[in-house]
């Protein structure tokens, strides 16, 4: 069994030190509860709506960075996934997530799809990531995506094919769409999408969201964990901080994929061939408008 700790937190906007302190407190609690992995939301070390603060809070994920030194030490006690602003050696800035385990950084995922429409302006501040890779950890092979990444179907698909048996989605999604539902429309969408990936890819999926307000934007929390049958294992409260746990039984992968051998039957050569054709086609759009 893998014990997953979901740290559904609020953050202090642009104050890495204060956020690190909260990370350490949650990690302590999770370790006491014998968690194997503690997952924090998107940009958990900085807050989300940073605007010009983005460049001011950027970190280099390495053992000589004081913030990462602290986190790397903590990762001796449990694996960690944290969100942060990353600056590379050429001073490009990314919306990134680091997976830390046993004092090592095992993976950095740089957000590939930066929403820049409506209330979002991420491409103004961030460079886009250019790779989607699953990676090995002591807990198994995992994949990480950040919010908008999983609104595109291909990143979860690629991670699935690349061997990820647990998809770790982290988000900082402003709540929107108040209607008569029990949760905001945006909360319901994200839950549907995460559940759909768990079902279609017969794999474990979690989405870890955050809570709190930044100016008028409110983050709804409602983090979820789904098993490889697409069944909900755990859900965090809406609009409130929470540290909660989910037990993942790896044998569920065997059962789900025996019942539904979608991974066995997936035809990657066909996908590859058709993508090549579509990419090189002269007229990729329909010849007539949709009526």
């Amino acid at each position: 069994m893998i014990k997953l700790a979901i740290a559904q937190i609020d953050t202090v906007l642009g104050n890495v030190e204060a956020n690190l302190e909260k990370h350490m407190a949650r990690i302590d609690e999770a370790v006491q509860a014998k968690a194997d992995l503690v997952v924090f939301p998107e940009l958990s070390l900085t807050g989300y709506a940073l605007q010009d603060l983005t460049a001011e809070v950027a970190l280099r994920p390495a053992s000589d960075d004081p913030t990462f030194q602290t986190l790397l030490r903590a990762s001796q006690r449990a694996d960690l996934l944290v969100g942060f602003v990353e600056e590379d050696e050429r001073h490009r800035i990314y919306n990134s997530a680091a997976y830390l385990s046993q004092g090592e950084i095992l993976s950095i995922h740089r957000k590939v799809y930066l929403p820049t429409y409506g209330m979002f302006d991420e491409s103004r501040y961030f460079a886009w990531g250019d790779s989607i890779r699953a990676f090995d950890t002591p807990l198994g092979r995992l994949g990480v995506l950040i919010c908008e990444d999983f609104w595109h179907a291909s990143p979860p698909y690629l991670l699935w094919l690349d061997g990820a048996d647990l998809l770790l989605f982290i988000s900082a999604s402003p709540g929107r769409g108040l209607d008569t539902g029990d949760a905001l429309e945006s909360a319901r969408w994200v839950e549907h999408v995460a559940q759909a990936y768990a079902s279609l890819f017969t794999t474990f999926v979690t989405n870890v969201g955050r809570v709190g307000f930044e100016d008028g934007l409110g983050f709804w929390g409602g983090s979820v964990v789904f098993d490889p049958h697409g069944e909900l294992i755990a859900r965090g409260p809406y609009h409130e901080e929470s540290l909660f746990f989910a037990e993942l039984d790896p044998h569920q992968l065997h059962r789900a994929r025996t019942r539904l051998p979608l991974l066995r039957d997936e035809r990657t050569e066909l996908v590859h061939r058709e993508l090549q054709r579509i990419r090189h086609s002269d007229s990729p759009g329909p010849r007539k408008p949709f009526k």
Binding site: L178, D182, G216, G218
Partner: peptide, 22 residues
Amino acid sequence: VELDINPALARKILTGFIRSET
């Protein structure tokens, strides 16, 4: 057009907003 809302949810969000932003 239906403008009906879940008022309990609005109440929760707006009281949280007032507390936080104050």
